[in-house]
């Protein structure tokens, strides 16, 4: 179709806004990544001396390695617990006609919707009251509460899309409840649980505020980063930020790809 001049102008204008938005959002990321590879000082940027030196230094930094370990342990355990809870809650709410259905949903979604500072603080006060000392375990509890909403939502959506006659058919053919879950329900939920787990990992991986309150002496990557920045701005920080970013982006892309075809047969 032939376009008038005004329409061309509008196209150009919209294109500029889009480009500008991308520039503002992603330029700092690009700059940050560049400075993790290329050294710079008062004399300018030394393009020719690009190297992975700062990344190697990170690997030698024991406190950073420990932080990475803690982060991984915390997110894997928190996501695993949240996944199991999400499946149980979703089945209870959707099929068993949960008594406090509304309340359950509210409880599940609240930690995700509340300001993290409130969630963190209230958990801190709670643990303090009942005399649990802070550490990995308390961070895991905090993260589980946070990511449960993500997993619950995805599992519930999948469960609702699944015809209940499948469960009836399974029982009708002589399967026990456990067999029905194993052979019929779980294969149907699995894609949603995996997608939810990746998304939850991404959330848990760079969660900072709740963690600050619950960490005690333990350090996760975001906390380590925060600590490093107070000492001084070194390219090491650029490197660590780039790693965090890359991991987050990869998980976001996986989630985006998996959520899109979720309507059809993803298996």
């Amino acid at each position: 179709m032939h376009k008038t001049n005004t329409e061309h102008l509008i196209d150009v204008f919209l294109g500029l806004i889009t480009a500008g938005t991308f520039f503002v959002l992603y330029m700092p990321i690009v700059v940050n990544s560049i400075f993790s590879l290329v050294p710079s000082d008062r004399n300018g940027i030394h393009w020719g001396e690009a190297s992975f030196e700062w990344y190697w230094r990170l690997l030698e930094n024991e406190s950073v390695i420990a932080a990475i370990k803690t982060t991984l342990i915390v997110s894997v355990i928190a996501v695993a617990i949240a996944a199991i809870l999400a499946i149980i809650l979703a089945i209870y709410v959707e099929w068993e006609g949960a008594v406090f259905q509304r309340t359950i949903e509210l409880v599940v979604y609240t930690p995700f919707l509340m300001p993290p500072i409130i969630t963190g603080l209230s958990l801190l006060m709670f643990f303090d009251r009942i005399g649990i000392s802070r550490g990995e375990a308390t961070i895991i509890v905090g993260h589980t509460a946070l990511v449960l909403a993500v997993l619950y939502r995805l599992v519930l959506t999948r469960l609702r899309a699944m015809p209940h006659t499948l469960v009836e058919a399974s029982a009708d053919l002589g399967a026990t409840r456990l067999q029905t879950f194993r052979y019929v329900v779980w294969p149907q939920l699995r894609p949603a649980v995996i997608t939810g787990a990746v998304l939850a990992m991404a959330v848990s991986f760079d969660e900072t505020l709740i963690t600050v309150f619950l960490a005690g002496d333990t350090t996760t990557i975001p906390l380590r980063l925060w600590g490093m920045m107070r000492v001084g701005f070194k390219p090491e920080i650029n490197a660590l930020v780039t790693i965090v970013l890359l991991v987050s982006i990869i998980m976001a892309v996986i989630t985006a790809i998996r959520i899109k075809p979720a309507e059809g047969n993803e298996e």
Binding site: P163, T165, L166, D172, A175, T176
Partner: peptide
């Protein structure tokens, strides 16, 4: 007697075949 133990089997309106 539970569904799974009754000597009857059902053909459902939507067939209820296990898609996976």
């Amino acid at each position: 007697t539970h569904i799974s133990k009754r000597p009857f089997n059902t053909v459902f309106q939507d067939y209820a075949l296990f898609p996976h």
